[in-house]
Design a protein around this nucleic acid. Sequence first.
DNA 1: TATAAAAAAGTAACCGGTTACATTGAAAAT
DNA 2: ATTTTCAATGTAACCGGTTACTTTTTTATA
Lengths: 337, 337
Amino acid sequence: MSTILDVCKLANVSKATVSRVINGTGQVKESTREKVFSAMQSLGYRPNRLAQALATNKTHTIGLVVSDFDGIHFGLLLKQAAASAEFAKKQLIVTDGHNDPDYEYEVIMQLEAQCDAVVLYSRTLTDDHIQRLHQQLTIPIVVINRDLPEQLFHSVSFQQEDAIKLMMGHLLDNGHRQIACITGHMMNPTGIARLNGYKYSLAQLGVNFDEKLVKHGVYDMKSGYQACKELINDGVSFTAIIAFNDCMALGALRALTEAGIQVPEQVSIIGIDNDPVSEFFTPRLTTVKLPIADMTKQAVELAITLCDETKATHSYQYKGQLIERESVMPVRSVLSS
Amino acid sequence: MSTILDVCKLANVSKATVSRVINGTGQVKESTREKVFSAMQSLGYRPNRLAQALATNKTHTIGLVVSDFDGIHFGLLLKQAAASAEFAKKQLIVTDGHNDPDYEYEVIMQLEAQCDAVVLYSRTLTDDHIQRLHQQLTIPIVVINRDLPEQLFHSVSFQQEDAIKLMMGHLLDNGHRQIACITGHMMNPTGIARLNGYKYSLAQLGVNFDEKLVKHGVYDMKSGYQACKELINDGVSFTAIIAFNDCMALGALRALTEAGIQVPEQVSIIGIDNDPVSEFFTPRLTTVKLPIADMTKQAVELAITLCDETKATHSYQYKGQLIERESVMPVRSVLSS
DNA sequence: TATAAAAAAGTAACCGGTTACATTGAAAAT
DNA sequence: ATTTTCAATGTAACCGGTTACTTTTTTATA
């Protein structure tokens, strides 16, 4: 791997001059520029990014941290982040926190010297961790999908509670009253906000909250499947299931199918995310779209802006959008009444 | 962000001494070590990785390059790579090549100064690109899922052709003779090897290869869906579909379902990958497992080994394993005969 | 043609670490 | 008491770039 010195020798100029032609800064005679260029060419020279970063204190890199690489939105998120980063000619470095808050915290702190800004999509970090990060870090951080009480940092968030209300509204409008709920993790704000939405919607119509109708999943198909199976085995009666994401809804669908329960004729299901696979199941899953790609784009672009200019705290809010497909229908009793 | 100099001042020692306690090298008096430690502590000091890398020419980082972030195996691959890397206390930096061979080539060359080794899972790079990479790069490269004629570099590969033969064998054993095929990209060796497997198996039983039964997809559900729709619209008759991955098989399943064609009663489907979602569709998809997690683990571990020692070219071969579920059954005519 | 101004190129310090080598001081050996 | 040995620490060069500042060369102006 050749260095700038090799280029210097071959082109018979100083480091400064080579540096100037690399960066297109300062004044360089055309003939010299060509000399240097061809030297770089013939050596296959590529400036060492680490050295450049060290010297300029600019890495031209955005760090993207997720709690876990198998996160549900992970694919879309990464793809969009990569696209936005490349568009701005920034490098993207992606890391996960192994679902361990302390590890994740360390990972982010380590990123400080390697990035100009970081985008965080965390499921595991506590609010307190995030606060500390915000205080300690000297580089800007943009948080996706996390609302902290005070708007202390840049964030791109989603109206969790409203989204659930939207889903519940759809179910309630279709006459459902016995609505089972498959939640996600309950240690973070997302799960809590969503459960609040569920309870709120129930209360609005004077339906009692029934603990037995609530099962906790971990956002994957398997846990949705299992939660639904428990629901069935428990013998509680319900006419609809609301799941805190599409994957779990789809897992539940499978459990229902296995149990010989018809969807949506006997039980309706609604999910949230608008996961690409949802359209391919039978019946096609009714869901609420969580615009993760848009949110990611916003977050990465904001992060990129923040590399160069300090800005007052920005925060963007996105909301859900109902996508009606085939997994929800009016409850039988309503039809026949 | 504090530097080593801040620690020096606070602890009243030289850079060398601080460096020694950071790395646990050389001799340092216990009392001094403590002094330095507490200085680092109170400053929240973290050594700058870039500077360390520049000085030592060791980055403790493995680069993972994929052609595209929405690659099918992407989730599992990343998760496993992250786990293996962390286990060895290496940083993992992940990049995609935007499905553009030249861009991908550049990305990898750029990684040279930032990584000690790179693991490549490429769908877009040509054999020639890979050869050039191998010649140009001064760091080792491990290629997943790619067989080059000569064993010039480290690789972890999958017996593509045999896997297809396994799938075809299963279909043929079940009496199927009219087997439609939904392929993937045809510009890379994987697609070609797989198609060869298809043709070979057909030829073995003296079944004519019929161009009309072959449709090209791009490994996602949508293309599988569309390919299958075309098959139906074309009016060609077939009793089974073999798809070059599970996603496309699942897309085809959806198309069949929509057309009112029963799976597996009227048409059998088989995929390859053992994608986690395959189990949740109805009917559960019969498939051939492609042990991507194992392969990734192998590749990353090999890459990590190669950071420290130069080794002769290694190459590992994995093979497929049939997972029988519910989407394949004996062809009707055979049953009734 | 001499001189000021502008352009081109070079010098050297710096970014934040590591490390070979030099120096210091104290314990061990003579 | 003197010399040897070695643990403990410091000095300075280096990694591969950037950049403020200086010097040299060229061009423009008088």
